[in-house]
């Protein structure tokens, strides 16, 4: 059961920066940029994921954070910290728990560095996933103070998904995507598939060093 036929080679960190300008909105694979060897520090690609880079424009989307407060997605993204974003729903049983577990492990493995990141999980089943339900879900994954879950109207959730090219219509058709941006103004690194926490950490370090 091969769920994702990923690129065989990893996107090297040194390529992310120059290509971000060239390939706005286009997956690197389409641009034909492939590395011959994994760059130092980058996790080796597997059939579990593929990595590309995009320049997403985030529209004004009003969401409800798991503490019940109404927020603007752009404010949450642009608070100066590195952003790790994924889309989940609490009644999802296969991919989302794995994705959330990876966030959980990643947050723990960051140790003292965790204050420099913001983990954002947006529900794609917002009418079911009330703030209270999201808090329960967050607790289950031992979410620390750097990790918030978001709900809102159906339209807001769809708008957020569309902004990052992850909207698939119905929630059962979702695919696992993680989006990483080391700082406001930097390009978004998109991971289709699932990276382990260790691989995510490796990617983060590499982006910090080279990106």
């Amino acid at each position: 059961m091969h769920l994702h036929s990923g690129l065989k080679r990893t996107l090297p960190a040194r390529l992310i920066r120059p290509l971000a300008g060239l390939c706005l909105g286009i997956a690197l694979g389409v641009c034909g940029a492939r590395a011959e060897a994994p760059a130092t520090g980058q996790p080796a690609a597997t059939d579990r994921f593929r990595v590309s880079t995009f320049a997403y424009q985030v529209p004004a989307v009003r969401l409800v954070r798991d503490d019940g407060k109404g927020v603007l997605l752009s404010d949450e993204l642009d608070d100066g910290r590195a952003v790790f974003l994924n889309f989940i729903f609490t009644s999802c049983t296969s991919v989302c728990p794995l994705s959330s577990k990876n966030f959980s492990d990643f947050e723990r493995e960051l140790g003292a560095e965790r204050t420099r990141v913001h983990l954002i999980s947006i529900s794609i089943d917002p009418e079911q996933d009330t703030p209270a339900r999201l808090r329960d879900y967050a607790r289950k994954f031992h979410a620390g103070p750097e990790w918030q879950h978001y709900t809102g109207t159906q339209a807001a959730s769809v708008a957020a998904q569309q902004a990052f090219g992850t909207f698939r219509g119905a929630k059962m058709d979702h695919t696992p995507v993680t989006l990483v941006r080391v700082a406001p103004g930097k390009p978004w690194v998109r991971i289709d598939g699932l990276m382990t926490a260790g691989e995510l950490l490796q990617l983060y370090r590499s982006l910090l060093a080279h990106g």
Partner: peptide, 18 residues
């Protein structure tokens, strides 16, 4: 949780086939 109560599995997500 994945194979469902019926045991008949599910197509969840594009290409995610239980």
């Amino acid at each position: 949780r994945c194979h469902r109560r019926s045991g008949l599995g599910v197509m969840e997500g594009r290409g995610s086939s239980i």
